[in-house]
Amino acid sequence: MDRRSFIKSTALITGGTMVGPSAFISKSQSNKRLTILHTNDTHSNIDPFPANHAKYPGKGGVAKRFDLIQKIRVEEEHVLLVDAGDIFQGTPYFNKFGGVLEMKLMTELGYEAATMGNHDFDGGMDGFKKAQAYAKFPFLCSNYDFQNTLLDGLTQDHMVIDKAGIKVGLFGLGVKLKGLVPDNKFLETKYLDPIEIATDQVKQLQKKNCDLIICLSHLGYSYKDDKRMSDLLLAANTSGIHMIIGGHTHTFLDKPSEVSNKEGNTVLVNQVGWAGVNLGRVDFEFDKQCFSKKESLLVQ
């Protein structure tokens, strides 16, 4: 059922009372399904690795990623493609063209959101701004305060996307820049506490009636120093997030980690290495429940 007819029937049944589309689902309607595809730390790897590469011979490459995504789009009606940062730096494509090709290609592949990684500052904020002009998708950065910088107003905290009648709320979190990125590349950008910001972002997205809340994170999967902010820490110390799509530590996970959040609900934390060697895929199924307790996430 497409969204328009869905709203129409909802309005009819409820006689116009604004309960919202999620208030009604007929028994006969099958579960809704949304496929999320994600990458992280692609690092300007436009071409596949060479056939004689020690670790990833012939793997990756944007054209092949497009091919794979197109195949999934044929099979699945509702697909959401996102990236968790460090789009720039790693091959001469970035040095020579400043990230323009990366942005053009991501737009062409149909990315709908991304967050900024530390290497996305490598061309300076003016460099990012120039390349970003070629991106037709938003950058979600909720814990960088860009006031008094060139990037002020060019990113957004979060977004809500309607897919299959499901309201998906997305927000982005970045890693602490000091010591990782030269001061002159991020200037007056302020880094704000990820847990505080995430808590606030979730609240805002819940107010907008999001059914699924996803965090695009460039914090890193986990660290030896267990006080250093990471996706696993974030997941355990917040509530309301269903999935964290991570990056930065180039961690290859076959399956997302399942973390119990502050309320004891499961959060999925995923990351797919780097360089576009793998594509992450999560198929969410949404089954309307009226009488069970608060939200939960079943992992198959």
Partner: peptide, 30 residues
Amino acid sequence: CQPHYQISAHSESIPVVQAGMPDNHIDSLI
């Protein structure tokens, strides 16, 4: 009451290899 979704998830990490779709205009862009 307060309706909500029971969400279930199935995940995998897919190696990026040629899937053999007919149109790939990305190459010509690169």
